[in-house]
Nucleic acid binder design. Structure first.
Lengths: 251, 251
DNA sequence: AATTGTGATTTGGTATGCCAATTTTGCTGT
DNA sequence: ACAGCAAAATTGGCATACCAAATCACAATT
């Protein structure tokens, strides 16, 4: 037999992860502030009915995630609020419309922020991405990737780490949502791709002119167009999106 | 003794981290491809002359970083190349100026977004927070908390989960940064509190008028004032902030 | 020769115990 | 009272030992 069959079937999640997640929730439920001391490893061990080794591994996980800081002989201390990580799970099932609304606000600001300080290299990079988008009309596989690159490259042009982080976070939110995949599948079939390509061009033109308000408007209009597309699609896909798409009266 | 002095001096880096980094280098130096099996924990333990426990902890670190995948009874496998470890720069050590810049952009958009849809209850809540801020001129302990409530309540008024999440995240970023604590300590002494209180009032006025652009401007100006305060303080605190505060040419 | 079953081996999973750094306690001397 | 120091308690660091799942080797069977 030449074919090596699939071994290693999906494994149950490692215990230390479950414990780590439980500890996160405990912290989130409590009134603990950043800098406060956590219960000791031994306390958690008894609480969860496992050995200290496992709790220690869970602590290492939280330490890698920069949620806590561990000090020998002293204890472990809350370094960052777990809310920043905890809410992300909850946020993974926000509606596409709600997410687009937020992106419209924030990304247009980011575009305006980038315009005055964007470098020649950044502009070239955006042009390159645009070329790729123009070329691969059929190769839709990477269309989403290029789209992401375009938006995030603008964020990077602001040279502000926080804005890059925020934009990345917003963009990745849709990955957790199966609804987006359906949308993308639909959209690929249509001519909306051309519309968005033109939108991207307009944004780039404003960035080249170092026109902050122009860039803001262009980005705003771009995402507005995406919203409109979404709106139209929701007509034909009504059963799927019903009660899900329009959670927000906003806009 | 009422004052709790600072204990917990800086600690030497934890051993499992060193081992984890060493393993990363070993992988990088080798010709290992993604999917290949790594040497076992026992092998590394003997190689580094430590117990398997430490190697295991290092493996957990690599697993959290999504570099490897661990399978019971089988072994550990390379999941991503160590070079692809270019994750987002850890936001915990972002400079105050950079963070304020991002907040100025995003929170002013949020204020504009909230203005048209804010409810009477939200307005009342903001008024209550303002009253608290006005009252507790001396009780500076909760000043930061009230400040946070004010800003985040505006985000909640947008009724957009994503915006609430984003604002919360931005606000919590400063908790990880010791520099902010120093700033707050300084600021409490000054009369800047009155300035910011007045700023908050102006924002609320615009929100009451349902004036989106007015709210945007008011919030922008508020954070601009905070930035100016920070700037002034950086003069007197120069040694502490040098090379840290002005990482961004932006603004 | 191919397949299958079973036991040995490999490999990660978990628990227990002791060590070292830190913090707290409390005694002692001034 | 107070300061200083030392012993004791606390807490994380690390190692050893044993458990369980997966894999492998090989003989029995077809």
């Amino acid at each position: 037999m030449a074919i090596k069959v699939i071994k290693n079937p999906p494994m149950a999640e490692r215990l230390y992860r479950e414990i780590g997640e439980s500890i996160k929730q405990e912290i989130a439920k409590s009134t603990m502030k950043v800098g406060d001391k956590l219960p000791t490893e031994r306390v958690y061990a008894e609480l969860f009915g496992v050995s200290r080794t496992l709790v220690r591994e869970a602590f290492i996980m939280l330490e890698i995630e920069e949620l806590i800081e561990v000090r020998k002989g002293s204890g472990s201390y809350l370094k960052n609020s777990p809310s920043s990580l905890l809410t992300i799970a909850h946020v993974s099932d926000v509606g596409p419309f709600e997410l687009l609304q937020a992106r419209q606000e924030i990304e247009s600001s980011i575009a305006a922020c980038a315009a005055p300080v964007i470098t020649k290299q950044d502009l070239q990079k955006l042009q390159d991405i645009l070329d790729i988008e123009s070329a691969e009309l059929e190769v839709v596989e990477n269309a989403n990737s290029a789209d992401r690159d375009f938006h995030l490259s603008i964020a990077q042009a602001t040279q502000n780490t926080v804005l890059v982080d925020t934009a990345t976070r917003l963009w990745d939110m849709k990955d957790g949502n199966p609804m987006w995949k359906k949308l993308h599948a639909r959209i690929q079939d249509t001519s909306y791709h051309d519309q968005w390509l033109e939108d991207h061009r307009k944004v780039l033109v404003q960035l080249r002119k170092r026109n902050a308000e122009g860039a803001r408007q262009a980005m705003w209009q771009h995402i507005e167009n995406v919203k409109q597309t979404l709106f139209k699609l929701s007509d034909t896909e009504a059963p799927d999106f019903d009660g899900y798409l329009f959670a927000q009266p906003h806009g």
